[in-house]
Amino acid sequence: MTMGAPRFWRKTQSRYNLYGVKCKSCNATYFPPRKICPSCRRASKLEDVKLTPKGEVLTYTVIRSAPEGFERQTPYIMAIVKLDEGPMVTTQIVDCEPDEVEIGMAVEGVFRKIRESGKDGPIYYGFKFRPARADKDLAV
């Protein structure tokens, strides 16, 4: 991928910290951010909102035939995750084997490398999701 750095740099906040938008007119939340609320259109009142990186797997697949730049990673799990706050996101599921993922599985965000622009280009980071840890598992 030979895309220049600005293309993805300008999305850094959403990619790093799951910033979406919320429409104050209809209360709908969108991720990724939009400039217009598709329901309210001219009456849109959008403001930035940081979404909580928690949700559940709505559906998933295991990619075995990868596009350029992902050949070394196969097999990897891609999923649509429905965030607790409503929006759905496409994401890789990591720290999970292909035979462990299932619809309805609780997941949480984790910061990972998304892709590299060749051997000498920028490295892009952002959220992926992993199986959620229960609070009780946090302690020693």
């Binding site: 990673q73 890789q92 990591v94 720290d95 910061f111 990972r112 490398k113 490295i123 980071y125």
Partner: peptide
């Protein structure tokens, strides 16, 4: 893992 590095670990 393939997609972990010093930046992701540090973060």
């Amino acid at each position: 893992d393939f997609d972990e590095d010093t930046a992701t670990i540090a973060t």
